[in-house]
Design a protein around this nucleic acid. Structure first.
Lengths: 261, 261
DNA sequence: GAGTGGTCTAGACCACTGT
DNA sequence: CAGTGGTCTAGACCACTCC
């Protein structure tokens, strides 16, 4: 086995066994290099393995630390029914909370919100999900949700609607109306659409550089990709959202009820 | 910006723009080092960034290649109802398929299966999920599911049952009875347990070395961690499963039906 | 054996952080 | 300013794959 792997193993074992505690600082690289009788670049290679695994963080000019696990925010699938129930409530009530607060238990005032609307056209992928021709005009909405206490958003959302469908209510075409009290389901309600079901497709991978940047991800953190597909009571796909989530801050929860015997 | 980052950016841009196609081989490292007027270690550093992002694969003695995306297997949450419906079917029918086939569209004969039973005790985590005292005796069952055509399993499963509950049917304590026709829900049925709902908690992270090893993961592939919690009609948690999935081969699909207005 | 990536060195110099 | 990590070099030698 390579020397850098042996060193990585030794340090990893120390972390797992609790000999190195979360938040604890490791000795400086040159000290570790001496201890393990190797050169600094080789020792750095060992550390970079642990960084990629998400076990340690390096802070330039400061030191290397055992990573502290982050608190995860739950995103529960009962949010969809909750959102639907809320759609026909009085506006004052809808104003009070959004579904992010429902999920996170945070207050409205803890959250910052940003929305941007764009004209787009359906590529092959979106066209097949919506069941529309490639090139169909879409409304693309880009959201970010921030926790005010934190620097980085915990979700990046690209939501797509068929432009000609939502144009029935011009208010829906204007980003200035965001955040819309009651969310997307309420927006759809204003044009007579009722949702029948929400399908979510989930996968994960390492972040791209852009994602790492925008979500403020350290090395060794994955992203969860969630595609949410909303189907109305007529069986038509009315909204598709691509959500990028920081995996170290998110836990998705799905409850599947079963019919009784 | 660091030189290795510039080189990584240039190569990444080439891959994204399709100038470098999936499966295509990159020039040798020494050639690339010359092209980018840098040393081999620096060029390697650039490549290692792309490896960590899952964009390229290095094959020792062969070359460096643009990674080809893998086909993902869907794991749909209707599997739970499907499994429940099957529980009370005749054994001959239950024998024919398992839920993995239901998900993947593969035949029984394409799948290899391994199960191992162990005695275990509830740690704090499991105890709180089951709602039992720490130290309670559990039956731990370890499964792997392989596609015969492939070398590596696509799922590692650790399933936990309360020992004294399942001991009512001694057949359930013996790994030799695996694979059990009709799966866990049928096993529970033999001791009078009917499931009411299945809750799944999902997150993701880079694999540990052991996980990468057992799932045959290349660098730059994440794992999805899924904890499945089965609750019976009495509101008691009867099974907890921790599933580790290769994120490049898996897509989880959840459909949440909504009540009509 | 030719060509590829894998590992390692010893040292230089830079950039950042906190005192 | 001292101490930390970040980058880069030029080259050596090893290990693997394929012809």
């Amino acid at each position: 086995m390579a020397k850098y792997e042996q060193i990585a193993d030794a340090l990893r074992a120390g972390i797992r066994a609790g000999r190195l505690l979360p938040g604890e600082r490791l000795p400086a690289e040159d000290k570790l290099a001496v201890r393990y009788r190797t050169s600094v670049p080789t020792l750095q290679r060992a550390l970079s393995e642990l960084v990629a695994e998400g076990l340690i963080d390096k802070r330039h000019g400061v030191g290397t630390f055992v990573r502290t696990p982050r608190r995860r925010i739950e995103r529960n699938n009962d949010r969809h029914q909750w959102e639907k129930d809320r759609v026909r409530r009085p506006k004052a009530e809808r104003l009070r909370t959004g579904s992010t607060e429902h999920d996170t238990g945070l207050e409205v005032t803890d959250l910052a919100f940003h929305a941007e609307y764009r004209d787009a056209t359906a590529d092959e992928d979106l066209a097949s999900v919506f069941g529309i021709p490639v090139g169909t005009r879409l409304l693309e909405r880009i959201y970010r949700t921030n926790c005010r206490a934190e620097d980085a958003p915990f979700a990046l959302v690209h939501s797509y609607l068929v432009h000609d469908v939502v144009a029935a209510n011009p208010d829906l075409l204007d980003a200035a109306n965001e955040p819309w009290p009651g969310g997307t389901q309420n927006q759809l309600y204003t044009i007579g659409i009722e949702l029948d079901r929400v399908t979510e497709r989930i996968t994960a991978r390492p972040p791209t550089v852009e994602e790492a940047d925008r979500l403020g991800l350290k090395k060794g953190v994955s992203v969860i990709l969630l595609r949410k597909i909303c189907t109305d009571t007529g069986g038509r796909v009315v909204e598709v959202s691509d959500v990028t989530l920081a995996a170290d801050r998110t836990e998705l929860v799905y409850t599947t009820p079963l019919k009784r015997w």
